[in-house]
């Protein structure tokens, strides 16, 4: 159910230390999210474009992953152009679309795509457990990291349980419809899933205790910080310096 085809490649981007990637994504997302001026956003747009070429991913696949995000963005377009005071562009019944509203929407669309694209290109090119280890190394609270990791690890298990339950319902002739019986049965199913997930979490914890777990995750593979990572770090740093310069000077 979960596959991560992007993480399998062999580009420069794939071999970059995940710690660098996480830091770059965080910094970039923050700086871009609080920016409004097109000039700065134009400069910010260079990063994902360059990353895309470095990643050697297929444009089709990348665009496919961008679609869901833009679904949300589309929702914004339904409301925001009409909710800003300013110069009138066109009217739709009682609603007035303003120049300010449309510009705001444009900037928002631009920003969210930049942030998402950068995150996608940097993070999905690392296997999940490298990211998890990197988060540990970046001193994130280990509970948060574990929560993130276990969510990832057990989604397929919960999904399999869901499939089993819904198949069990089907073979006994269950047909969803718009009626009380459907709602009640679906409620049972969801309740059962939560219950089972809870019980499983208890068993997993016991299994961990049984193997000597005392609160710390030790990792077998350690990252090797290479010269290339330092170099990449310097390049990213200079890039961000430029971004900050444009932003505040």
């Amino acid at each position: 159910m979960i596959d991560s085809p992007f993480s399998q490649g062999k580009s420069i981007l794939h071999s970059l230390d995940p710690r660098v990637k996480i830091l770059v994504v965080s910094l970039y997302s923050f700086l871009t999210a609080v920016e409004k001026r097109p000039v700065v956003l134009l400069y910010a747009s260079f990063l994902p474009v360059i990353l895309f070429f470095l990643s050697r991913l297929r444009i089709r696949e990348v665009v496919k992953r961008m679609l869901p995000v833009n679904g949300f963005v589309l929702l914004l377009w339904l409301f925001l152009p009409f909710s800003f005071p300013g110069e009138k562009i066109f009217t739709l019944g009682p609603l007035v679309a303003t120049r300010e509203g449309i510009l705001y929407c444009l900037i928002l669309t631009w920003k969210s795509n930049l942030i998402f694209l950068t995150t996608l290109l940097l993070l999905s090119t690392s296997p999940i457990f490298h990211l998890v280890h990197a988060l540990h190394h970046l001193r994130l609270p280990s509970r948060l990291v574990q929560l993130f990791y276990f969510t990832y690890r057990y989604i397929p298990v919960v999904h399999r349980e869901y499939t089993r339950l819904s198949q069990a319902a089907k073979i006994r002739g269950f047909q969803p419809g718009n009626n009380l019986h459907t709602y009640r049965s679906t409620g049972y199913l969801v309740g059962m899933l939560i219950l089972r997930a809870y019980e499983r979490s208890q068993r997993i914890y016991q299994a961990m205790l049984a193997r000597g777990f005392q609160g710390t995750f030790w990792t077998l593979h350690h990252f090797q910080w290479r010269k290339a990572d330092s170099l990449a770090g310097v390049i990213f740093f200079l890039y961000f310096l430029g971004l900050c310069y444009l932003k505040w000077l």
């Binding site: 690890r153 068993r203 997993i204 299994a207």
Partner: peptide, 8 residues
């Protein structure tokens, strides 16, 4: 599934 929780 309760016992194997590491990625690999």
């Amino acid at each position: 599934d309760d016992q194997l929780f590491s990625p690999t």
